[in-house]
Design a protein around this nucleic acid. Structure first.
Lengths: 229, 229
DNA sequence: AGTGTAAATATACAGTGTTTATATTTAGAT
DNA sequence: ATCTAAATATAAACACTGTATATTTACACT
């Protein structure tokens, strides 16, 4: 038997490979991702995967884009659940959804923002669209604040020109926002990411404050810092 | 030739293995760490390493502890370069040293705070001493602030009891500080880590604000938030 | 001098990503 | 209906990886 007849083949093998990859990542972590073990579970041979993904890194890239899309969906849904005028509430909603998604899918979070795959470096321009879309939820709220003249940013560091190409791609997927809104969003994002990534990676000493309360405390501090009242 | 005479042997092979590991990590990243390639470079066989480290994870743990020690040295040196009364200046010094160390040794930073070694999970209690010591530099300054009644922490989330054993180990290496100082330090740490880790991992969009200025902006915001004046 | 131990090698096993060549099924064109 | 070509899978092999086992040898101590 060199090639099974189509009757016994898996339909949509490309999707099946990704699904099996996610299943294994969820069960045993991102580090355990292995083309051969995926093939074993699908009862195919490892080289067959190369008909659907150029190499292991291409599969990882596809997984990352899928994860960003899921992440972005939850970000956008959280934002849109609050009416557009209540901007600070939107910030809280997006912030809470951020942590919730990360805690629900810790492996996906690490796959996106960590570097758990040995040797893998993502193709920036390929990933940027889905990344821009997911971070765009926060950016859009900050931009609304800025337009409403409620963004408190005295002496904010100057934004630098350059990287026009990446910026254009960003704008085409996240929205055409002022670069100041983008820069402020990056700082807010880094705060949220700081707490969440340490929590996910269990790098926070296990003693200390309640995670939920600490996270809300940080969100409040951030809103107080950046929103005029 | 089954065993070379001691004359041609490498003295202090344990140290030599670690040094070679660091060299390779610096040159080709944490992901490329390999016992066999270390052995090749030292002109020994791979199993010989097992006389000095129980397995690959034990070597990684030793590297992490060394990295924490180097990191802690720089933290403590930065703190002690400023006289103890100038507490806010000490926070800046420790914060700046944090980013500087991370940018000087990005691979070591990722080794400590990321998860770039597939399947490796560090033995918490073994690493805690060196970790506590390095983070203790910041904690000690926050504790000084608290004692001087200059710590601005209205409505800070309650600290939780439990984990007494880890806490005792922490205190024996970082100092016997109030748990509130510890908790505040964790939040400050998460902010610094958020910015630095995104910068190190190149996960920050390359457009935006100047890295140095943004980092100082965040340090100032943090000092303004937590230090009474 | 003899012996025991420690430290290295040699060998082997199971796993990984990937390449190459080969076989077969399937779709499309004559 | 038949021939051809592309698509899709396998089989085998290569160069790696960490690690276990058995063996050999150098050295230190009695």
């Amino acid at each position: 038997m060199v090639r099974p007849s189509k009757k016994q083949q898996i339909p949509n093998l490309q999707e099946a490979i990704k699904e099996t990859a996610w299943k294994q990542i969820t069960e045993t972590g991102t580090a355990a991702l292995s083309l051969r073990s995926i093939a074993r579970e699908l009862n195919i041979t490892a080289p067959a995967i190369y008909n659907y993904f150029a190499d292991r890194d291409a599969l990882v890239t596809a997984l990352i884009i899928d994860a960003y899309t899921s992440f972005g969906d939850s970000q956008i849904a959280a934002r849109d659940a609050i009416s557009a005028e209540k901007m600070d509430e939107r910030i809280y909603a997006v912030g809470i959804a951020y942590r919730q998604w990360a805690r629900t899918y810790p492996q996906r979070y690490q796959l996106i923002f960590g570097t758990p795959i040995p040797g893998y470096v993502g193709p920036f321009m390929e990933i940027l669209p889905s990344a821009a879309r997911s971070l765009g939820a926060l950016v859009s709220v900050i931009e609304d604040l800025r337009i409403a003249n409620k963004l408190k940013v005295d002496r904010y560091p100057n934004v630098q020109p350059g990287h026009e190409e990446e910026f254009d791609v960003w704008k085409s997927f996240a929205g055409n926002y002022d670069i100041l809104s983008l820069a402020v969003s990056m700082l807010i994002w880094s705060r949220v990411h700081g707490l969440v990534s340490l929590e996910i990676a269990n790098n926070m000493p296990p003693f200390g404050v309640n995670g939920d309360a600490l996270y809300m405390y940080e969100l409040e501090a951030t809103v107080n810092q950046f929103v005029k009242r």
